[in-house]
Amino acid sequence: MSTATGGPSAPPPSANRSTGGAPRVGNSGWVTGMVLFAGVVMMVNGILEIFQGIMAIAEDDVFVKTPKYIFQFDLTGWGWIHLIIGVLVAVTGFGVIRGASWARIVGIFLASLSMISAFLSLPYYPLWSLVVVALDVFVIWALCIYRED
């Protein structure tokens, strides 16, 4: 390109010369912060799911038993599901905080599993299940918008 005086014009500041002038794709500070926050949320959510699983395995009276629920499982079975998912989510959250690229992909998958298990356990612990679904949506979003530099 040239200017009206015939000299070359400078590329726009957002252009990347190695890609032929295409805008750079990277992470802003808030994206990196959201991924860090998503990792912390995953660790906390995983630890709370571990506790929820232990409570269900011990057959505590904290959970409401719904007699005609289509996805009704034994409370001990739900406890083991939550315990296993909780351990995996907490470990993966630690990996996200450490910046491991595998942890973001696994984190998206595990947050999806966590969301499904929270939805299926909705009649047993409704308010907490809705909170977990909302947190898992945030985690999936935050891990999906991050790009490797």
Results as ranks from 00 to 15, higher is better:
112 S>Q: 06
112 S>M: 10
44 V>L: 09
76 T>C: 06
43 M>Y: 11
121 S>A: 12
14 S>K: 04
44 V>M: 06
137 V>W: 09
61 D>Q: 11
62 V>G: 05
72 Q>S: 13
71 F>A: 09
111 A>Q: 00
146 Y>R: 04
109 F>T: 05
116 I>A: 06
144 C>H: 13
103 A>W: 06
115 M>C: 11
20 G>T: 09
118 A>R: 00
78 W>R: 04
127 L>F: 07
61 D>A: 11
84 I>C: 05
78 W>F: 08
14 S>F: 05
35 V>D: 03
108 I>M: 09
89 V>G: 00
59 E>Y: 08
117 S>R: 03
36 L>I: 13
95 G>V: 04
74 D>L: 10
115 M>G: 06
140 I>Y: 03
1 M>C: 13
105 I>E: 15
55 M>G: 04
2 S>M: 13
133 V>A: 05
3 T>S: 08
103 A>Y: 07
46 G>K: 02
53 G>Y: 07
149 D>Y: 08
56 A>F: 05
77 G>C: 12
44 V>N: 04
97 I>V: 13
122 L>I: 12
61 D>T: 11
117 S>T: 08
139 V>G: 01
102 W>G: 00
114 S>C: 09
14 S>H: 12
127 L>N: 13
134 A>E: 14
21 G>F: 01
109 F>V: 07
33 G>Y: 15
94 F>Q: 07
51 F>K: 12
41 V>A: 06
42 M>D: 01
1 M>W: 14
45 N>I: 11
42 M>Q: 08
59 E>D: 13
1 M>N: 12
15 A>Q: 06
122 L>H: 01
136 D>F: 05
82 H>I: 09
94 F>C: 06
50 I>H: 02
42 M>T: 03
61 D>R: 13
121 S>E: 06
117 S>K: 02
73 F>W: 09
88 L>D: 07
27 N>D: 07
70 I>V: 15
127 L>P: 12
143 L>K: 00
137 V>C: 08
81 I>M: 07
58 A>H: 09
74 D>E: 15
123 P>K: 04
18 S>N: 08
102 W>R: 01
31 V>P: 00
28 S>L: 11
93 G>F: 03
81 I>F: 11
17 R>I: 14
88 L>K: 01
54 I>L: 10
146 Y>P: 04
97 I>M: 08
147 R>K: 11
135 L>S: 04
106 V>G: 02
131 V>D: 12
89 V>D: 00
14 S>W: 05
52 Q>E: 12
16 N>W: 05
67 P>Y: 02
39 G>T: 03
111 A>L: 01
118 A>F: 01
8 P>T: 15
147 R>M: 15
49 E>Q: 15
9 S>A: 12
4 A>D: 11
148 E>H: 14
20 G>Q: 02
29 G>V: 08
40 V>F: 15
50 I>A: 04
130 L>H: 08
38 A>G: 04
16 N>T: 10
14 S>V: 12
32 T>N: 13
67 P>F: 03
66 T>P: 03
51 F>V: 15
58 A>C: 12
111 A>E: 01
109 F>P: 02
96 V>R: 00
18 S>K: 10
132 V>Q: 04
79 G>V: 00
69 Y>P: 01
21 G>V: 02
18 S>W: 14
132 V>Y: 05
145 I>C: 10
9 S>W: 14
136 D>R: 03
103 A>F: 08
140 I>C: 07
103 A>C: 10
14 S>Y: 05
147 R>F: 06
52 Q>V: 12
